[in-house]
Design a protein around this nucleic acid. Sequence first.
DNA 1: GCGTCTCTTTACCAGTTGGTAGACACCCGA
DNA 2: TCGGGTGTCTACCAACTGGTAAAGAGACGC
Lengths: 200, 200
Amino acid sequence: MAPSEIPTRQRILDAALDLFGNRGVDAVSLDEIARAVGVRKQTVLYWFASKDDLVEAVLGEAVAELLIVVEAALRAAPPDPLARLDALVAAVFRPAVRRPALLGLIGEIGRLSESHAAHLAGLLEPSVGRAIAALRSEMDAGRIRRADPALLAALIYSTVTGLATEARVLGAVGWTASPSGLRRLRSELRAFVRAALAPT
Amino acid sequence: MAPSEIPTRQRILDAALDLFGNRGVDAVSLDEIARAVGVRKQTVLYWFASKDDLVEAVLGEAVAELLIVVEAALRAAPPDPLARLDALVAAVFRPAVRRPALLGLIGEIGRLSESHAAHLAGLLEPSVGRAIAALRSEMDAGRIRRADPALLAALIYSTVTGLATEARVLGAVGWTASPSGLRRLRSELRAFVRAALAPT
DNA sequence: GCGTCTCTTTACCAGTTGGTAGACACCCGA
DNA sequence: TCGGGTGTCTACCAACTGGTAAAGAGACGC
């Protein structure tokens, strides 16, 4: 552990998150993760009893990390619903750019085993429930367009994360990841979501 | 070839599309594809010189299939831009429901090798270019909200396919895949995209 | 000095992977 | 009747997979 101050376990989690998120869980071997950390495969298996355990831990960390960022941004945001939406977009956007693997991994969830998916659903459930309740009350107050609040939440989610993760798609329409490109993308995303929710 | 009228090569492509789309390219072995077709792995390798070749062929077919459906729907749609959008949503939605692997595979593109991604970008380019041009001219005519047409196209894309593919996300908000659930989902998706594009 | 606890290692293993080599069966035109 | 395709097969292979067993290495209190 001497060469670095970060403990091995954490370094394994970090490396695994990047590799899993970028290339998919099944495409990454324990050997590869170990190599990235600078350690032998058996050290990985010392900290995580199996690859499955590692996947679960990585997913839990990724979700927790994202939830913390988002919840903090929402707590700091003004009460106006559209402004809160802007805050949400910005909060998801920052990690998406700085660490694309994080959202990539969230996107992986769909093809994981039932038990992993259920575990994650449990982690997400409180936040999702709160978001849906907030959307519903804003609808009742006439501040956003009336719609099915649960499906609306899913739509916002898929728009924001889908765009943030699929940089390839953006490349296909001539977008580049320069700082100005990022600003442009974020402002378009804001305008899009705002318009989609504005009361009729 | 006797037992079935569909030639082996096509049956391999079909099976591979389903498996790749549902579980990811790296997670599916040639043996598994062969088993699904009812043939030995070496027969797969007879028709496609390598797994990479097979991946390329499957992706090409998936993209072509989707483009045909979408282009046909758009040709049949009325000139009104929002109505055309409805047609687009419906066109993407149908295969997404009937054959979820198809869109799943498209979502896989992001993690493929550069050469595959470039190949697909080439296939998609004409349609994307046309879509962007159409959006721009509708903006000029004041029939949809003014925005960066290329990024707007990417946003629409990520909203529609993201939602259609991530059934797991929908499960997390209490949605179920019943016929009535599907109708509800499609109409919410329509309303969302319509609102996001409506002129201010 | 001695055991013990934590961490990382080397040495294996059985199963699976993508891929090669070559044989076998069948059909069809000469 | 024969020869050459065409398509599928059996038999292999080296490399890699996740995982087990057990042996150090170093720090710590005694």
